[in-house]
Design a binder for these strands. Structure first.
Length: 288
DNA sequence: ATCCTATCCTGTAGGC
DNA sequence: TGCCTACAGGATAGGA
């Protein structure tokens, strides 16, 4: 589900509501998440108050007032859901809730994750940059917009397809499967091209599209493909803007030609062969 | 060092 | 209707 625009949407909304709120009670109702357990969280969260949440790539840092941060990754199906005091539209009946935080002012925050691929980990601020997941992250494209040269240099020695390259969080933190296809489509670059062979001229088209697509998606509160919701349980509005993603066999929204789907690195790629005609598609060279 | 595959988990959609 | 399979916005361990 959540790529940079969805996570940024959640961050912005949380930023309006959680800073200063103090956790009166924390309840773990489903402790196993990915490989870790949440069992120890309540003792460490109760009594703490939130500061302003931050984000790098798809990771949220929910800073607390005790020099710790609640490191959050939504995986495929994670959600943060908020309810103001007295607003009980969301409740204990919700399935797959891992954590509920009851604030002193009676407002509430839930973490729900159907597939349990998300992450919640309390980390000291002093150790955050050394956290095994955070340590590997490349630059966040909204904070540090990629340039033709940074992309060209970063991909120079890569032998994976450019689509796969865009998904590598060590190179750029935040692009996921939906926006990778959309960015390459708008850049008119064939997703099969090897990253190390993509020309400067092509990177010069890709760089601004990364910033533009992600920024536009943030402005529309992200894309709801199936499970993503804002903290108010609302879907994102960027789905209307998708030109190729999830449109296999349907007309490309730019040129009308049928969109094609194929699998790269185990993940679906959507592309328009008409719009994305590369100089030379990746080609297997027969062994000499 | 890189790259690739399988795996974690649950729900849903589509074919029969 | 039910059963079965394939697939879904992700990261990462382990083997090649």
């Amino acid at each position: 589900m959540p790529e940079l625009p969805e996570v940024e949407t959640v961050r912005r909304m949380l930023a309006e509501h959680i800073p200063g709120r103090r956790i009166a009670k924390a309840i773990v109702s489903r402790h196993r998440l990915r490989s870790e357990t949440l069992a120890g969280l309540p003792r460490r969260l109760e009594g703490r108050a939130f500061a302003a949440p931050r984000r790098t790539g798809k990771f949220l840092f929910l800073d607390l007032d005790d020099e710790h941060t609640l490191l959050s990754h939504l995986g495929m199906s994670g959600r943060w859901l908020f309810a103001a005091a007295g607003e009980d539209s969301l409740d204990a009946s919700m399935p797959h809730v891992h954590l509920r935080l009851d604030f002193a002012d009676r407002s509430r925050l839930w973490y729900q994750d159907i597939r349990r691929f998300g992450m919640l980990r309390l980390v000291p601020l002093s150790g955050l940059s050394g956290d095994p997941s955070v340590r590997l992250l490349g630059p966040d494209p909204l904070e540090h917009p990629p340039t033709t040269e940074s992309l060209f240099a970063g991909a120079r020695r890569s032998r994976v397809a450019v689509k796969t390259f865009l998904l590598d969080q060590r190179k750029l933190a935040g692009i996921g499967n939906i926006y990778a296809s959309e960015i390459l489509h708008r850049s008119r670059v064939d997703p099969r091209r090897l990253a190390g062979r993509v020309t400067r001229e092509e990177w010069s088209r890709i760089a601004p599209e990364i910033t533009r697509v992600l920024g536009d998606a943030v402005n529309r509160m992200g894309t709801t493909f199936s499970t993503y919701r804002t903290i108010w349980n609302e879907p994102g509005q960027y789905g209307d803007q998708l030109l190729v993603y999830d449109r296999a066999g349907l007309p490309c929204r730019a040129c009308g030609a049928p969109v094609r789907r194929f699998v790269q690195g185990g993940r679906a790629t959507f592309w328009c062969p008409d719009c994305q005609r590369g100089p030379s598609p990746a080609r297997k060279r027969p062994k000499a």
